[in-house]
Amino acid sequence: MSQQKLTAAFVHALGLTDDKVTDDLTYNTIPEWDSTAHMILIAELEDTFDIMLDTDDIIDMSSVAEAKRILAKYNVQF
C-alpha cells in the first residue's frame, strides 16, 4: 500500500509514468526531477503520508530508495 502511494506521489509530483519510478531513480538525473520539482515532490510526500519532513531529510532524499529509507523514520512501512 505504501509503495503504491509512494509511486503515485512521484508520478503526480514529477509527471512521470509508473514504470519510471524505481528504487534507482535519482535526483537531478532526469529533467523532471530538478530542484524545483523536488519541492513539489516534498509537498506531495508530506500530504500523502501526513508528515512534516525535516530539512536534513529533504536534502538527503536523493533517490526513490533513499525516500523509502527516510519515510521509514516517519513510521511509513514498505
Binding site: 516534498i42 509537498a43 508530506e46 530539512t55
Partner: peptide
C-alpha cells in the same frame, strides 16, 4: 519563508 514555500509549493 522556507516552511511557507513548502505549503505554497503544493498549491503552486
Amino acid at each position: 519563508a522556507q516552511l511557507a514555500t513548502r505549503l505554497m509549493a503544493k498549491q503552486q
